[in-house]
Design a binder for these strands. Structure first.
Lengths: 187, 187
DNA sequence: GTCTATAGATAGATAGAC
DNA sequence: GTCTATCTATCTATAGAC
């Protein structure tokens, strides 16, 4: 068993995953953590405090997941793993919640920037693994593409979403490789 | 002056633009439209009714804006226009609100799909204008990239966001052109 | 048909008990 | 230090007045 504060954070993250930002309320989180809302405010005085702490946890989790994705498996399977992660709607709800919070709260904006910077840095490693130039623009491209694919899949919930996501990823990586080959004919 | 219902819809869309989905409440919309919340429910009995009607308006507006973007200006300026549209945070708030609503409400999911299909179809026209194959995957790629770029710019609010967005767009289009050239060396 | 007063539900925060 | 009862604010929906 963990300490109370950690339990609350895990409950908050779970609510965000399942119900999205609109469901991120103190009563629901308290209920899931097994205490009263008025007790929850002892550990996190305001909703913003709680949100910031949950965002911090979410960032660490998300970056760790990306690390596992980069380390594991061979190159041809990478896009399958990526696609699977992107169409995992619980991740997307957290991402969108953080984006919405960042839009309204400068402190959370800093956290979102940290997440973005972490993802972009790891994207560079991934591109190197795939023999693609890890330029800032290439990293930005893959990052933005990933975010867009996950948001679209969440909102449309197409039955063929995962396949369609993987196809776009494969295309993007093959385009980047093509250009790298053109730029460096020797390779 | 327009009729009451239209005024309410415009007020609702404006609130969504400025405050995002979290601010989309009947009291705020009623206040902006100049009537009481309890009166607003006469025109739109439930919040969901109002949201669906505002989403319908937002879709029509957004697709019209894309049409103007496609029609206007020469090819080299297209990405500048696109980037400017994507970093317009009011648009992004509407998009994210619709995505969030679609995640929780099947009726709104259908509307979001309609928006996505409309954007994708228009992307095909844009790609043809640029001498790029308007395949489903290429359209999906540009669509997802656009969504991702706009969400990231909203959440990070980087000072160089518009430039960075434009750079990624330029790269994406040039990659697609490169492949089209490789596929069809005669061109 | 148009509008309002009011009820009912839920959220967030605080003072204070143990 | 830990927890709770309670207050206030805000939101949605309805019954009913004009």
């Amino acid at each position: 068993m963990q300490d109370r504060k950690t339990e609350i954070l895990l409950a908050g993250l779970q609510v965000l995953r399942e119900e999205g930002f609109a469901g991120f309320t103190q009563p629901r989180i308290a209920k899931r953590a097994g205490l009263r809302q008025s007790n929850l405010t002892y550990y996190f005085p305001t909703r913003a405090d709680l949100l910031a702490a949950v965002a911090r946890l979410a960032i660490d989790n998300q970056l760790a997941a990306v690390d596992r994705m980069i380390e594991g498996g061979a190159a041809p399977e990478k896009t399958s793993q990526m696609a699977k992660g992107l169409v995992h709607h619980e991740n997307t709800r957290v991402l969108m919640g953080m984006a919405q919070a960042a839009d309204q709260n400068p402190a959370l904006r800093d956290l979102f920037r940290e997440l973005a910077a972490g993802i972009i840095a790891r994207t560079g490693v991934l591109l190197e693994d795939m023999n693609v130039a890890p330029s800032e623009t290439n990293c930005d491209l893959i990052h933005a593409l990933s975010v867009g694919l996950s948001v679209i899949d969440l909102a449309t919930a197409r039955p063929d979403g995962e396949l369609r996501t993987k196809t776009v990823l494969d295309t993007a990586f093959s385009l980047l490789k093509l250009r790298t080959a053109n730029d460096n004919p020797a390779i």
